[in-house]
Structures are given as structure tokens and as C-alpha cells.
Amino acid sequence: MTKQKTKRWSDYMWIISATYFALGFFNIVFAWLGVICFMIPLLMAILGGGKGYCNKYCGRGQLFLQIGNTLGWSRKHVAPRWLSSPWFRHGFLIFFLFFFIEMIWLTVQVANGIESLHETIHLLWTFNVPWHWAYPVAIEPWKAQFAFGLYGIMLTSLIVGVILTVIYRPRTWCVFCPMGNMTQMISKMKAK
């Protein structure tokens, strides 16, 4: 039924995203590349590109489409309506920022020698999962701490996003994704 559209290079960003997540299982230092996924969408929105990142280039969003549509692992039921309410979206953004700041704070403490390096990743805002096996070559402790922290955030979003893709529709995560929400807020401010 769905017409096959001509694919462009930007339709393959999900491969980069999948590679990113795979690399984190072998060497956590690659998690630093995730900084790009935070900078580019915000910069694009600030420079007037709207939600161009979400609309065309986000590999994580495309990964959910691959899982849900190409593999067909999705019930394709619409998610509860409150998920797209401003209350939930902004509430989740604050929740997310709290953990993001906590991650930065731990990095700073490790940099100052107050805390020692935690070779774990924090998953689903609850579990500290041992991840020392993905740290083969020691680097400066704070740099490693940031990598563990950022990878935990990224992997959490992937896990939640995949679960939502299976239960509801692909890219249900995008309804309240903090990056998507922030870029839309910037876009709305600029459009005024």
C-alpha cells in the first residue's frame, strides 16, 4: 500500500545509530560520539532548520521505524493520548534534565578526584549495570566517566523507544523525546 519513495543517503542514518550502540559494548569511549546527537539537533533548530534533525537525520528515530515497519515488530496501536500532552512532555524533559545534570555532576566530581570512576552504566534511571568489560584501555577518568554516563542515557532512550515501538507505534518515543521537545520549543520561539 505504502508507495516506495526513493531513498536518500539520509535514510540510512539508522545504520550509524546501530553502529554507535554496538560500539558501546566493546569500547565505551565511543560513547563520546553521542555528543554529536545532542549538538546537531539543537544547532539546527537554533540556526532556523526547525526539526530538520528529527525529520531527516536522526538515526535513533529511523531505527524505531526499521524495527517497527521493516521488521514488523510493532502492534501499531496508537499510544495513550496523555503521552503527547504538554504536561507529560515537559515533565519528562525536566526529569531527563535532572539525570543529565546528575551525570555531568558525577563527571565533575571524578575530574576533581572526589569520586572514583564508576565503571557502570545507569539504565532506565534505576539500575547500575556493570560495564567494565567495555573499558579495555584506560583514559583520563573523567573522560571515561562521561562516556559511561552518556552511553547510559542513550541506551536508556533506545530501550524505552524499542519497547514503545513494539507496544504502540514506531517512533512513539519521539512524542516525548527530550531532544525532539527542545528542538520544537526552539522552533516555536523562532517562528513567533
Partner: peptide, 8 residues
């Protein structure tokens, strides 16, 4: 939410 799924 301007995600762009409908566009594609």
C-alpha cells in the same frame, strides 16, 4: 510534535 513521520 512535528516528528515528520506523516511527511515520510
Amino acid at each position: 510534535v512535528a516528528c515528520g513521520v506523516c511527511v515520510s
